[in-house]
Nucleic acid binder design. Sequence first.
DNA 1: CGTGATAACGGTACCGGTATCGGTAACATG
DNA 2: CATGTTACCGATACCGGTACCGTTATCACG
Lengths: 342, 342
Amino acid sequence: MRRSTLEEVAALAGVSKMTASRALRGASDVAQDTRERVQHAAERLSYVANRLALSLSSQRTNLVAVVVPSMSNTVFPEVLSGITTGLEGSGMQAVFGISDYDADKERDIIRDMLSWQPAAIVVTGLDQPEETVRMLKAADIPVIQVMDLDGTPVDFNVGLSHGEAGRDMAKALLAAGRRKIAYIGSALDKDLRAGKRKAAFEQVLLAQGLGLVSHRIGDDFSSIALGKRLTADMLASRSDIDSIYYSNDDMAAGGLFACMEAGIAVPSQILLAGFNGLDLTDCLPALIATSRSPRRAMGEITAKLITDVMANGRVSGPKTIAFKPPIIGLEGAAAGLAKKSE
Amino acid sequence: MRRSTLEEVAALAGVSKMTASRALRGASDVAQDTRERVQHAAERLSYVANRLALSLSSQRTNLVAVVVPSMSNTVFPEVLSGITTGLEGSGMQAVFGISDYDADKERDIIRDMLSWQPAAIVVTGLDQPEETVRMLKAADIPVIQVMDLDGTPVDFNVGLSHGEAGRDMAKALLAAGRRKIAYIGSALDKDLRAGKRKAAFEQVLLAQGLGLVSHRIGDDFSSIALGKRLTADMLASRSDIDSIYYSNDDMAAGGLFACMEAGIAVPSQILLAGFNGLDLTDCLPALIATSRSPRRAMGEITAKLITDVMANGRVSGPKTIAFKPPIIGLEGAAAGLAKKSE
DNA sequence: CGTGATAACGGTACCGGTATCGGTAACATG
DNA sequence: CATGTTACCGATACCGGTACCGTTATCACG
C-alpha cells in the first residue's frame, strides 16, 4: 500500500494527469461528470496530493515559518497560538522552530526553514547577527520580527519596546514611593529582551541618583522555582528591600511564594514587579505589578499582516506595529499612579 | 535579488550541477579544491538548497509532523520541546500543528501535514475517528500516538494510562481519609484524557459506595482563573467538602488560591488534587497532590523512537511505551500512603 | 458548407534537486 | 605500450505535480 499519485488517480478515472489535476483543484474547463469520476477515484485511493511536487512546480508554498526561542515559558506558545488562529482559513500553515535562545541555533533553524521556501517567516526579536539578517534578506519573502521594537527591523516589525517597559516600571515603582529596589533575573545574556528591560530600568534609577540595592542573576532559565529560590536567598541576606523587579512574571510569582514563606507582606512591605501579565499573575493571593504584554494579539496581528501581504502583494498599513503594555497590579500601592503609567 | 539555485552556484564555481550537489553534501568523489570552490560560490550567493526539490527528488524528508490539541497549557509545549531536543542532531525537523481539541480540525491538519510527506507523524491521544485513522494508516509512515495509553494504537504508542491515574488518585484520597470528595473540571467533552481520569476516579468512589459530593464543569478551557472561579463558587455552596479532584494542576492551583482567599486550610481542611506535576505546583504555598506526568520524557522517548526507526528501519524495543506517573504532594496528608501510590 | 467560437481535454516543458550510470584523465602495472 | 584501476566529473532520467499551449469535437452562423 504505497501512497497513490495523481497519475494513478487519473488512470483510474480514465483521464490524463492534467485533467485530473484540474478536476481536483476545482478549476474550470472540466466536464461535470469527468470531475465527479476523478473525485471518486481520488477518494477510492485515499489520494493526498504531494505538496512537495505541488509547491516545487507552482513555485509557491502555504508555509509560514516561525522561530521562537523557547517553549518552556507560556509566552511563546501563546504567540504561536495567536499566529495559527490568525492564519486560519487563509490556507496558510504555520511551522515552528525553537532556538533555545541560541543565536547559532537560530541561524541554523532559519536556514532550514528557508529551505522549505516558506511564503513568509516570523522570527523573535531584532537582535539577529549579521549573517542571519543577510539570509533573511536573501530569502526575498516577507520577514516579520515580533515581540521586540528596540532595534532596526529587517522588514516588518510587531512588538513592544522593552526599554520603555523597563523605564515605565521603574517610574511606577518610584511613584509608589519605593527607593530600596532590587532586581532578580535569569540568564540575561540569552534573553536579550529581559536584558533590555533591566538596563532601561536601572537607567531610570540612576537618573534619580539611585541604584539597585540588591541583585541576583540565576544561572538557569526563568521559572517559578528559580524566582522563589533567588528571592529566598536575597531576603535572607538583607532586610531593607522595599521592592523587587523580576525578569518576568514566572520569576515574580516564585518571589511571591518566597515572601509568603518568609512572612513578608506583599505589596505593602515589599512590592514585586514582573513582566507579561500572565493568567497566573491575576490569580495570585497578593497583588503583583506587571506590564501586560499582548501575546496573542501580537500573534494575530502578525498573521493578519502576512495574509494581507499574500493577498494584495503589498501591505496597506505601516510596516511597524507597536504595542504599549499597560502596567497593572499597582492599584493599591500608589494612588494617582494610573495617569503616569498610562 | 532572487533565490539562487544550485545551477547558479555550479556555474559560478565552473562545474556541473551534479558536482556542485556532491560538493555541498560533503560526498566523496569530489576533489578538495573543487569542493572549496563550490562552497565558496555557495557562500557568495548565500545559497540555500531548496528542500522541496531535494525531498521530491530523493523521495524522503526530514520532517516529523506533530499534532497537539492546544498550546495554552504548558503541557503540550513541553512535549514539543522534548521532541525537538530529542530530534536534535538527527537531521530531523519537527513541525507542529494545533487542533484546538477539535476532531475535524485535527483530521484536516493531519491531512495537510501528510501532504508534506513527513518521515513520521506524532498525534495526541488514541481517540481519532475512523477516517483519520485510515489516513494515518494510508500514509505508510511511522505513526506515534502520545500522552494516552487507553485505547488501540495505530502503530506506536507512548504515554500513560489516564484511567489508572484517575483510579490511583481516588485510592490515594481515600487512603488519606477523605470521604467528601468533589470534582472540578473544564470542557471534558473536548479534553478526552481529563474525561478518562474523571470517569475512572468516580468509578473507584462508586466501588466504595461513595459518590462525588459536588461537581463543577467549566464552559471554558482549563486555566488557573477558571479553577479559582469554580472553586470559589463551590466553596460558597457547601462547607462539608474535604477534598477536590481537579482536571489538572492549573485548575488545582486556581483552587488553592480560592481556598486561601476563603481562609480554608490546605491540605488539612480540604485536600486538593490535580494532574501533571507542573513546576508551578512545587512552588505553591500549600501542598497539592498531583500525578507527575513525564511530559518532556514522553517527547524525548518519542523522538528516540523515530530516530531509531529511521536509522534501523525497524525498532528494537516494544511498540508501546508506558509511563506510570507517581502521585506526589500527599506526604503530610497520610502516612503509609507512599507504598500504595507507588 | 466553410468558418469561427467555445468547451473539454492532452502533450510537453518545466520546477530544482538527486540517483545512476557512464566517461575521461592520470597513473600504476605487467 | 596495452590494460586496469582509481579519482573526478557530467549527462540524463526521473520525483509528482502545474503552466502553458495545442488539439479535437461540437455547434452556431452567414
